[in-house]
């Protein structure tokens, strides 16, 4: 886990990691969220609606923004304060996702940073969702 402080931040600072979407992650997300919509659980239902298979929860692929902020950028000292997500295209089970965040703005007066983030799938090579994230910093009291 990274332990960056506000003073370590610079424009363009970038962190990235990869994650694979598995059936187990889908089942756990379903259990936690209670979202039992068949689009995410029934491949026949999903195909009938024009998808290649059961669609991964958008909020599951977006959940890795929490990891991006809390583990990588800035890591341990992070306090996630705002997240605006744009869903671009569907993700399927087995997809390998690359989650990336870039520091786009640093606000000295409020000790917050703005991160431009994206989730990109190896399959198809395109972005599946993007986010603007605002992050503050915790300090030892």
């Amino acid at each position: 886990m990274n332990r960056y402080h506000f003073e370590d931040m610079y424009m363009g600072m970038t962190e990235s990691f990869q994650v694979t979407i598995t059936e187990d992650k889908m089942l756990k997300f379903c259990e936690i969220s209670g979202d039992v919509n068949p689009l995410h659980r029934d491949p026949v239902f999903a195909r009938e609606r024009g998808f290649d298979g059961q669609v991964v929860y958008g909020m599951l692929s977006s959940a890795f923004y929490s990891t991006l902020v809390g583990v990588y950028l800035p890591g341990e000292n992070a306090l996630l304060q705002e997240l605006r997500i744009r869903m671009i295209r569907p993700v399927y089970i087995g997809d390998v996702l690359t989650v990336t965040g870039v520091v786009k703005d640093i606000r000295e007066a409020t000790k917050r940073i703005k991160i431009g983030a994206s989730v990109v799938s190896e399959i198809g090579g395109g972005g599946v969702n993007e986010a603007d994230i605002t992050v503050g910093f915790t300090e030892m009291i």
Partner: peptide
């Protein structure tokens, strides 16, 4: 905090933390 940042954006300025 949101107010301060929106004021900064609106007037294209930056406050210091002391201010």
């Amino acid at each position: 905090i949101t107010l301060i940042e929106n004021i900064e954006d609106r007037f294209d300025i930056r406050f210091t933390m002391l201010e």
